[in-house]
Amino acid sequence: MASRKYDIKSFPGFLPITALCLVILYAPLLVVTVYSLNDSNSITNWEGVSFRWYVDVFTGPESDKFKIAAWNSFTIAIVAATVSTTIATLAATAMIRGGRFRLRTVSFGLISLPLMVPEIVTAVATLIFFNSIGFTRGYLTILVAHIAFCIPFAYMPISARMQGIEDSYEQAAMDLYASKRQAFTKILLPLMLPGIISGFILAFIISLDDFIITNFVKGAGVETLPTAIFGSVKQGIKPNIMAISTMLLAVSIVMVTISYFVSKSDNTK
């Protein structure tokens, strides 16, 4: 194993491409961060370093709007991700541990439907639908729409993970007289946890980031962060938006770091 002519895993050029990928991903964000410190009303001219736009985010004329929008976004994303992850976990169990059954293909089609239907089509269809059943648009319509389209995003990593777990673990547990419920909660779920967490995170990001569907189904005065930002940014990006973005970025880096260390400490037990 040790003596092979080459390392089977590494390919020349892959590292530079990865580096390029990160540069493309981060360069615009870096620019945003730098320009959020710009002491100018317009982003196009550089007029020295200042923190005034950070102050503006919390005290400026638009601060209330963004606070409410941020609150809506986070609550919707957490609830939608939790509900859709739960639904997706149950569905994945049926699909992958439920044997062969007639509706399996149909169910799979239904679960992947939000991925297959382009977002603009879902958005318009949902708008027409809510309109015709008289569901007044508001916080709830956004939440319901988000739960629905987040399901496949949660489902994919979960089912991928479950396919990678051989059922011998559960079989062994049941051979030792564990009930099916116990096999599920004590064996399968813990093994599934990485898949469930990545499903949750994916669903959370998708919900937090969604603009198109939200923009169609949101009601009067109910904004999420993306729609509120869109309202501000479509006339050209402004320094206060850059400050908000920088803070969002900082918060997510902190969150991600914490979750990394939490998962690490869990593993040591």
Binding site: I87, I151, I165, S168, F184
Partner: peptide, 27 residues
């Protein structure tokens, strides 16, 4: 044997929430 039929009898109940939500709000 990653795919199995361990939970075959519960599958309708396991799938019901997904069917309902996706059926009503997407399909």
């Amino acid at each position: 044997s990653a795919q199995s039929d361990t939970y075959a009898e519960a599958r309708t109940w396991l799938l019901l929430p997904a069917w309902a939500v996706l059926g009503i709000f997407i399909l």
